[in-house]
Design a protein around this nucleic acid. Structure first.
Length: 862
RNA sequence: GCCCGCGUGGCGGAACUGGUAUACGCGACGGACUUAAAAUCCGUUGGCCUAACGGCCAUGGGAGUUCAAGUCUCCCCGCGGGCACCA
């Protein structure tokens, strides 16, 4: 009589066992090749969610699989523990952010441990711990000395609700990503990392990241946004300073003769200067800043500007004066913050010119058009063509015109060819408490002074108040007011803290030497970096991954590491989705609050009232379409949850959560449990030779079943190598079904059956480790499944004696015939033509041609 | 608007470099067990025609290349993602 499958019991047992023996401690002194598997570390928000379960299951499959393949695996876990939610919690519930964070970590650590992940918990780190951020402060100072960190006045996105500065990427449709408040522009003194110094390098190195998804490389490439163009100087006429000139950037210097105006960003220094003496310009600039990018597309779509009264001289047209506008569509952060407008060949410029009655001069004529008759209507012409109305450029194509005009610009001193990037420097200052303090002091005499290394870390003070708006560090005078480390005069600490993206830009390196006194130890990073397989959400495709790539290079420059790229392999997984439910009042309902009414609709569990079923979207608390992993693990066990996460959906796509799906996974494990436990404990001699020891083919056994076993090994192995977890699961289930259908009368078949189940356990072990370990033990195996090498398919079992080959007549399948595997063309042809169904399909017509693809298909053409 | 990606049964999805479309799972239907239900087990399950043998039609739509197209090419439709005044 076999015991019932009790997931909870066996999972607890095996987890305790693994922990006790330190089974997953990464070996720093091993002859085996290293493999570093890392999943993006979680923010300790309070509870793990299904996205974590999916992410960490995939990473664990890779870790356990690579271990079985003979690698020395590093698989660590930590906490992205600084950030705004902790401060919000502090304000709402009057708990200290640190207390809240560490309490959450304790909960989530327990939850993660219940998943049975093969993690080296000795290496756990939390970015909010002084033992972590002390090193970050040290590196900040190194970056500062290396010129990679600097301070500048800059326009920032100010979130008036969170009272903080937002990165561009944290502004979504003009609103703060967290608060949703309309973002304002403000001028503040900010710390920046000089990521633009590596713009070209970061772009070019993307080609070498062959184990990254193309999609991510493309997105990063677009983000960096390299363009070739020219800077052009327009002399300003009639200004106070006659020597003043306006510098613009253009990708189309060839259209210079079509210029009809210049335009400045409202935040351009010249605009700011003009605004001081001109209330209309000041008003306009303010209006632009207030609008930001957040207003309706229709409103912002309109290109508006204001004439400054200034005039710019054309570099190459004597006496030509262009009006200078301040315009809402010119960005200060791109190029030089000023443009020349060529309405004929740029759609925005055209709209602007039409609005303000500016000339539209075509200078590029489309191929085949008559230069004299060519006119611009409602659409600018942006394609290649022949230059017209352009003096020394006339007759050239666009490419040569660009080269020619660039030469002339350089020889006359009116400009130069240049390369421009969309990428901007990384602003890291945050006006928040719960972050890594920026380790500098502002001294009235010495200016910015780095805190000396031996005074690090600059610890966050514990006694802070969150009742006042703004940054609590600002109002904490005892912490803030310190003597200057250089001269001893009264000075102030920098009260900004770092963007949490800084924390996550090097944590993967810290895992290599989590307790060392230096940020990273050379021997440790030499052993482990780069990360061989990184796994996480595609939402981090640009920022986190780009910042980390920059950070590794900055660390290299400061002598910490010798490599450039932190992540050799990257996999971006899809989200976990669920249907959404709303009651008649429009309130969101949790899945457990609704049930089917039996007629295909959903109703409330309590009141039976009809429920509107919405489309399936990523699980989120706000829509209440979440399923709690802890509940699922409690009910079905971690193995079932893990198996479901890997089944059905390809890992890069979104996964639809379904109750029936998880039940299906549970059913399978229960059935497997029964199959194995019904066998009874095998004795060593009753079991016969294991597959790993017997490589000579035993023809007394069930050869077809053995072949299925080896084909499954082969298939699952290649699936796991390629991250095709769903296919691997399908194959293992298929083999299990196949074994279940076996006629086991003969002793040899019984033996094959047992071997088959052992293989199922070994193949499934990375996915559902607890049940496999338990059943492995049940089969009488004394050695740990964890220490078993990955099974290898044997070629002699993969080869078939005969093949089933479909026969087509004119491309339609009419029959299948059995042929020996090594059949020749003639034999295949005659066998095919001898087939009755084939003859019927030919229907007496003349056979024109017979195509035989050995072992694949036969096509008879009539 | 620009740049990517994806469209296969009732559903999630298989199908390696063009070679048996629908593996595996879910659901549904039928049956067994049960007083009954749940659970479990067995069977059927792309659509249409046929009493049956069998045939026809199906991978978003339309063309093309090929002995052969889910797979390659072109056009169109739909969905999703990224960037969005980038000069």
């Amino acid at each position: 009589m076999s015991e019932r499958y009790n997931a909870k019991e066996i999972e607890a047992k095996w987890q305790a066992g693994w922990e006790a023996e330190g089974a997953f401690h990464a070996d720093t002194d091993s002859p085996r090749p290293k493999y570093y598997v890392l999943e993006m570390f979680p923010y300790p928000s309070g509870n793990i969610h299904m996205g974590h379960v999916r992410n960490y299951t995939m990473g664990d499959v890779v870790a356990r699989y690579k271990r079985a393949r003979g690698f020395n695996v590093l698989h660590p876990m930590g906490w992205d523990a600084f950030g705004l939610p902790a401060e919000n919690a502090a304000m709402e519930r009057r708990v200290h952010p640190g207390e809240w964070t560490y309490a959450n970590i304790a909960i989530m650590r327990r939850q993660l441990k219940s998943m049975g992940l093969s993690l080296d918990w000795r290496r756990e780190i939390a970015t909010c711990h002084p033992g972590y951020y002390v090193h970050q402060q040290r590196m900040f100072i190194d970056f500062l000395k290396a010129g990679l960190a600097y301070r500048k006045e800059s326009w920032v996105n100010w979130d008036p609700v969170d009272n903080t500065v937002l990165a561009n990427e944290q502004v979504i449709e003009g609103k703060g990503w967290r608060s949703g408040a309309v973002v304002e522009k403000r001028l503040l003194s900010q710390w920046f990392f000089r990521i633009t110094a590596y713009a070209d390098e970061l772009l070019r190195a993307l080609d070498g990241l062959t184990r990254w998804p193309d999609k991510v490389r493309l997105m990063q490439g677009n983000w960096i946004g390299r363009s070739t163009g020219a800077r052009i100087f327009f002399p300003l006429l009639g200004g106070a300073d006659a020597a003043q000139r306006l510098e613009v950037y253009t990708t189309r210097p060839d259209t210079l003769f079509g210029a009809s105006f210049c335009a400045l960003s409202p935040n351009h220094p010249l605009s700011v200067e003009l605004a001081r003496g001109n209330p209309a310009i000041a008003d306009f600039a303010e209006q632009c800043n207030r609008l930001g990018t957040g207003e309706e597309a229709i409103e912002t779509a309109e290109k508006i500007g204001i004439d400054t009264g200034l005039r710019a001289g054309h570099p190459f047209i004597e006496g030509c004066e262009l009006p200078v506008y301040v315009a809402n569509f010119v960005l200060m952060d791109y190029g030089t913050g000023a443009i020349f407008g060529c309405p004929a060949h740029d759609q925005r410029d055209l709209e602007f010119a039409r609005k303000y009655g500016l000339p539209v001069i075509p200078v590029v004529c489309p191929p085949g058009s008559d230069a004299g008759a060519f006119e611009i209507g409602a659409e600018a012409f942006t394609d290649d063509g022949t230059l017209i109305n352009s003096d020394f450029l006339d007759g050239l194509d666009v490419q040569s015109a660009i080269a020619t005009v660039n030469e002339r610009l350089e020889s006359t001193g009116y400009g130069e060819a240049t390369i421009n990037y969309r990428l901007r420097d990384w602003g890291i200052s945050r006006q928040r408490y719960w972050g890594c303090p920026i380790p500098v002091v502002h001294c009235p005499d010495c200016g910015v002074v780095a805190v000396p290394y031996d005074q690090l870390p600059v610890r966050l003070p514990d006694d802070v108040a969150f009742d006042a708006p703004g940054n609590p560090l600002d109002s904490h005078t005892e912490w803030r007011d310190v003597p200057c480390p250089a001269c001893g005069a009264a000075a102030r600490r920098d009260t900004d803290t770092m963007d949490t993206f800084v924390d996550s830009s090097w944590y993967y390196a810290r895992f290599c030497s989590p307790r060392r006194d230096e940020p990273v130890a050379a021997d440790d990073v030499e052993q482990w970096l780069p990360v061989d397989q990184y796994i996480g959400g595609v939402e981090h495709a640009v920022l986190h991954l780009l910042y980390s790539r920059f950070f590794m290079r900055a660390m290299k420059r400061c002598g910490y590491v010798t490599i450039d790229e932190p992540f050799a392999g990257l996999f971006t997984q899809g989200m976990v989705c669920h249907e959404t439910y709303r009651n008649r009042a429009g309130n969101w309902l949790y899945p457990e609050q609704v049930k089917p009414d039996g007629k295909g609709a959903m109703v409330g569990v309590k009141d039976g009232a009809p429920v509107q079923v919405g489309r399936s979207v990523s699980m989120s608390k706000s829509k209440r379409n979440t399923v709690d992993p802890e509940q699922i693990i409690e009910t079905y066990g971690a193995d079932t949850a893990r198996l479901f996460m890997l089944s059905d959906s390809p890992p890069e796509r979104d996964l639809e959560w379904s109750d029936t799906g998880i039940k299906g996974a549970w059913r399978y494990l229960t059935a497997l449990w029964r199959m194995v436990t019904e066998l009874g404990e095998g004795s060593e001699d009753g079991r016969g030779p294991g597959l790993d020891s017997a490589s000579t083919r035993d023809d007394t056994a069930d050869v077809a079943a053995q072949r299925a076993i080896h084909q499954t090994i082969e298939g699952v192995t290649s699936d796991l190598e390629k991250f095709h977890f769903n296919r691997a699961v399908a194959r293992i289930r298929q083999l299990t079904n196949r074994l279940g259908e076996m006629d086991r009368q003969a002793a040899a078949s019984e033996q094959t059956y047992r071997q088959g189940l052992e293989i199922v356990l070994r193949l499934l072990a990375p996915m559902t480790p607890h049940i496999c370990a338990e059943l492995w033990r049940h089969l009488g195996r004394e050695n740990s499944l964890l220490d078993m090498d990955w099974p290898l398919a044997e070629a002699e079992y993969l080869a078939e004696d005969s093949v089933t080959v479909p026969v087509q007549v004119n491309g339609k399948k009419r029959a299948t015939i059995e042929l020996p595997s090594d059949h020749d063309e003639a034999g295949a042809e005659s066998a095919a033509l001898a087939n009755e169904a084939v003859q019927r399909a030919i229907a007496g017509k003349a056979v024109r041609k017979v195509i035989v693809v050995q072992g694949k298909i036969i096509n008879v053409v009539v």
